[in-house]
Design a binder for these strands. Structure first.
Lengths: 159, 159
DNA sequence: GTTCAAGTTCAAGTGAACTTGAGTTCAAGA
DNA sequence: TCTTGAACTCAAGTTCACTTGAACTTGAAC
């Protein structure tokens, strides 16, 4: 590995479209790796660009950093995805997107069925009842999957 | 307005499915209003339940508090939505959902077209290039609308 | 009159995914 | 050598939509 093949922060940032701070963050989170120059500056292998493209794609699908880390970690040898890896992963993501699309369509369907009645009834209307507070019964439960719910950060899942 | 018609916090909370803290928050944000008992406790009109159902429905569609406040504010006389209001609003939200569905389908289409090639090329692949960093040109720009992008809170819009 | 669940306020915390700022150092060209 | 832009670290800040905790008060029942 000739050191002239390594790219400095500015170039990685510009070519990937990520801010330097984001790239440092991804390194800290273990999504990418960097060599260091004599003076301590980051020097990136070219393959990091591909990894960053992967990260951008994944986050467009709605994956969290955690999930992206997992996904990258599942690649044999923890390498940058090859064509075959990418094929497999794409199918996985495609399924996720299909699920999200279906969820929105269910929500839309519920909305359409409410347009006529104008009810917005607390107990019976599937649309306003779409939260999980009434999940034990009733038609509205799970109209939206977690991946499309707005994150309610402080709502602890334990309990 | 007989004070026996007014509901205390516990009941509003239980019937709406919102935590008391959330209801207080909505009041502070101006989405709902409350009377006060002699001792300073909140007493809610029955119509607040309807307003809360509206808020839940809106947030299921992905509207922010800000947007919900606008939407409620646009109701003539700032009243709880009637059937006619609800009809109009539903159409509005339906369009928004359609847009979100279409965006996900575009993203899915991009993914499908990438499955074969395994490219993930930074410059040419519509999928990994879906951010707005290259929005000036190229095919990938605006695959996803803002409403479906993961919120990147610290990214200031001014500049 | 006592009890105590239910209510109150206010400040601070939560999580995700970064950004910003301050203060310092590196590296490359003139 | 000087300058200057690029990079560094580390702590703290940002947004959203709430929640949590502490310390206190109400109000309905017994």
């Amino acid at each position: 590995m000739d050191s002239r093949d390594l790219l400095p922060m500015g170039e990685i940032s510009h070519r990937s479209g990520f801010a330097a701070s984001a790239i440092r963050y991804y390194e800290a989170e273990g999504l990418i790796e960097a060599h260091r120059s004599g003076g301590g500056q980051r020097r990136f292998e070219r393959s990091v660009l591909r990894r960053l493209a992967f990260i951008r794609a994944a986050s467009n699908v709605g994956l969290s950093i955690e999930e992206i880390r997992d996904e990258l970690g599942r690649l044999p040898g923890n390498r940058t995805p090859t064509k075959a890896d990418w094929h497999r992963i794409s199918k996985h993501w495609g399924a996720r997107l299909d699920e999200q699309i279906a969820a929105l369509q269910r929500l839309k369907g519920g909305l359409d069925s409410c347009i006529g009645c104008g009810c917005l009834s607390l107990r019976s209307c599937a649309f306003s009842n779409a939260g999980d507070w009434a999940a034990q019964e009733g038609p509205g439960a799970q109209l939206l999957p977690d991946s499309l719910r707005k994150p309610h950060p402080a709502r602890r899942t334990s309990g």
